[in-house]
Design a protein around this nucleic acid. Sequence first.
DNA 1: CCGCTGACCAAACAAGTGCTTGGTAGGCTA
DNA 2: TAGCCTACCAAGCACTTGTTTGGTCAGCGG
Lengths: 200, 200
Amino acid sequence: MSEQAVKSAPGSNRRDELLKIAAELFASRGFKNTTVRDIADAAGILSGSLYHHFDSKESMVDEILSTFQNELFGAYAEIVAGSADPRAKLEAAVRVSFEAIDRHRNEVAIFQNEADYLGTFDRFAYLSDRNLQSRDVWLTLLGEGVRHGTLRQDLDVELVYRFIRDTVWVAVRWYRPGGKLSHHDVADQYLTILLDGITA
Amino acid sequence: MSEQAVKSAPGSNRRDELLKIAAELFASRGFKNTTVRDIADAAGILSGSLYHHFDSKESMVDEILSTFQNELFGAYAEIVAGSADPRAKLEAAVRVSFEAIDRHRNEVAIFQNEADYLGTFDRFAYLSDRNLQSRDVWLTLLGEGVRHGTLRQDLDVELVYRFIRDTVWVAVRWYRPGGKLSHHDVADQYLTILLDGITA
DNA sequence: CCGCTGACCAAACAAGTGCTTGGTAGGCTA
DNA sequence: TAGCCTACCAAGCACTTGTTTGGTCAGCGG
């Protein structure tokens, strides 16, 4: 997040409510495609009133994304630092990701759809940083797996990283919490395919 | 595409040029996020002049997407109708998709990013139709594979379909024609992972 | 009851949006 | 040479955008 402040207290109830509403809209329509009037309408207030709580539309996404990212990367860091074997670590990282989709659908969706665009602004440079950091996490885990002999030696880890990253995160487009499949189910099925393939 | 007409001849050179420029911008910045002035600037003309060639900004995406979709689904239809064995058909479908990413990056990107939003308009209803049609293609191929004994019996084909679809198309975000890996290479590696997994 | 604060409204602003209008210039064809 | 067509310009219109400003009002601590 960036420097200057917030007008209401950070713990404020209404504020969080508004952020949640904004996140919902940003996720489903896109950031640029959501107007401050849309947000205000959904909240039952006038657009100008939003500026009592936030100093810009950008501040809203900023806060939404940075809060989520901090939580997620905390979880990754724990896994990497842990002492489990390479395969277990890889599984854990996948499970944590699907869990994030379950618990923070909107945030994940916004990040997926807008990171490229927002990343070009100074204010959102941390998004690109986080992307690189996430690449490090996956490459480390995959590298450990290959060196350890758990994973195939002929893998292009860079490519595998991209496949995993994409497949995992893009699931946010169809996964719905409370649906037929829990995020545990989805993670199980995905790991089965990823680790052993789909052939009989 | 929709009913009414085009002002220039369909084969017109300049027209195609402008569509190409528009596609590039729509793909990289998003449809809503690209202004007609952006397109005109990139083409070296004034924004109003675009309306000599097209009757709206929507018409431009419409033409870009529908042209691409028709080509792609022609290729799918050939594969499904073919007489190859299930595994070969599945491989062919994957390869055709990566080839599409190679040859029509912008179109694929636009479809990936805007289909949900555009699909809500009557004019773009065909996008949703195509989505269902593509689901049919993959489910058919996967079903044949399972029945034939080529693929594992315990697969949730609906889920596998989503994973394949997402992984394949989302590659448009990082794949660059002329890069280190050709679309053949990418397809090979992907099929290896998909069919046999990443474990040793 | 005073003053303060958080949450909001009403109205407007400049900048940007997609699109329209009337016109011009060059080239092709009859 | 006349008429037409393609490609464009110059200017502007109606509307939407994010944001600002000055003010209202209920509740609450002192």
